[in-house]
């Protein structure tokens, strides 16, 4: 299970990275494994500000559907267009080509409340 040290995590199995004022958000290796084959990513709040822990979309897998929760309050500026034709990138490369959205943070200090890689590993029992 790959849980990169340089990312922040949530209890809902999202990851977030933050560089040059822009955040990139996706789901973790653990989450994609639990969901199984991902067939569709539905982003309902493109262009909108979404509060911390609020739903910004959902992930449809063959066996199940799961909501996506915002790790911090942010405005969604972009969704990963590659996922429209290849949603399975979230399975094969959850931290790279399988990123889900980019967002502008209102208050980057909210990142400090998120989990470190080690803390997240504890959440998933690693």
């Amino acid at each position: 299970m790959n849980i990169p040290d340089n990312l922040k995590y949530t209890n809902d199995h999202e990851w977030i990275s933050f560089e040059n004022g822009e955040a990139t958000i996706g789901i973790t290796d653990f989450a994609q494994r639990e969901l199984g084959d991902i067939v569709y990513i539905d982003i309902t709040a493109l262009g909108q500000e979404v509060g911390k822990d609020e739903v910004f979309g959902s992930v449809e897998a063959v066996k199940t559907v799961s909501d996506l929760f915002m790790p911090v309050t942010a405005s969604i500026s972009e969704m990963n267009a590659a996922l429209e034709s290849a949603p399975d990138l979230v399975n094969s490369d959850p931290y790279g080509q399988g990123w889900i959205i980019k967002a502008k943070l209102n208050d980057p200090s909210q990142l400090d409340q998120l989990l470190s890689a080690d803390e997240y590993k504890a959440v998933i029992g690693l």
Partner: peptide
Amino acid sequence: PVMYSGIM
């Protein structure tokens, strides 16, 4: 076992 390499 629910899946191995992937359902698809």
